[in-house]
Computed example of a mutant assay.
Amino acid sequence: MARLRGNRWQADVLVDGVRKRVSFKTQAEAEDYEKAVEGGYKPSAANTLGDFVDEAFDKLWGTAKSRKYIEGNWRVIYRYIPRDTALDKINDALVEKMVISMKRDGKQGGTINRKMANLTKLLKEAKRKGRLMTLPDFTEARQPEGNARELTMSREQERAVNLYFDHIGKPVAKHLFNFLLYTGCRMNEALTLDRKRVTPGRSVIFHHTLSKTSTTRTVPLVPQAAEAWAEVCKLTNSPTPFGELMPYWTFRDHWASLKAHLKVDEDEFVPHMLRHTCATRLVIAGVPLPMVMKWLGHKSIQVTMRYTNLVPDDLDVAAKALSMAA
């Protein structure tokens, strides 16, 4: 029978002859748990986080365009909640501990929220399938995102990256790096890019079926990107050269080695920063925001406008124009 213990309600049950006491926020939750156990539900260590992720992943995220990103999210989550953690051990305290640890490790609000969103979705599915009786309270886990700092790559770092990949003999990694930097495309867009969507030396079409925002856009190939594409195409006959020669996690492993080589400790120093760098360089060069928006395939101009925060002198140009008109 559920009993109040302090400010929590405690369910008292027998599982395979062993008494277990489990605490809940409300009397109703505790009583529902007791009824479920009486009806045959068995909290079991076999219902582990990792096993259920493996079981449910394709159903929950199998068709997601961001599948590789979500797989990466789970790699991070496992650092804080190990794969062998029983599902019924993931409670308010463990979620709070995870958030505190991620913040201590320098994770930004948006990063934490994305991981929590994946964890929440999975646990809701576990509850729906009867693997979990109650869900943790994720209300306090939500973090303010604000205007996060977008890290960009300097010209000096760009030269260092090319030299590093040359030095360790990873030409495909070098070509992919330059293609991402000078097209501003997303990693998945590069890895799934088909030869038939590229006009050599001129332009590339990122098709809506493979784009995060479901919009098709055509981007000019500047010399650096054109050279990178031409070189990688020489190395394979595959219709998707980058995807064939440089799988997602292989490039991430090379990037981790690069980061250590450059002695960079910022969490934001990830391949996606190349897209931010491309956008920022376009804005600094004076390209109108609607054109930058079209180049990157943003859905709204508000998303593009965040890059103006990285250009400290943009209002000086406006002030100069105003003074000349006076």
Rank of each mutant, 00 (worst) to 15 (best):
I168S: 12
T152M: 05
A148Y: 07
S154Y: 10
E150Y: 06
E156Y: 08
R195Y: 08
Y182D: 07
R155Y: 08
Q143E: 15
K170G: 03
T183L: 08
L163E: 10
R186I: 03
D194C: 07
L181N: 00
N147M: 13
A148W: 06
Q157F: 12
L191P: 00
T183Y: 05
I168K: 12
G146R: 07
F179P: 00
E140S: 14
E140G: 15
T139S: 15
I168T: 11
G184D: 02
Y164D: 09
C185S: 03
H175N: 13
A173S: 15
L135N: 05
R186V: 08
T152F: 00
S154T: 14
Q143W: 14
L151S: 07
R195M: 02
K174Y: 07
Q143Y: 09
F179K: 02
T183N: 08
E158K: 08
V198N: 04
E145S: 08
L135P: 03
E158N: 10
V172C: 03
G184A: 08
T139C: 11
M153R: 05
H175K: 02
V172T: 08
C185T: 00
V172H: 02
E158H: 15
L176Q: 03
Y164L: 09
E189G: 06
Q143H: 13
E140L: 14
H175Y: 15
L163C: 01
D166C: 06
F177G: 01
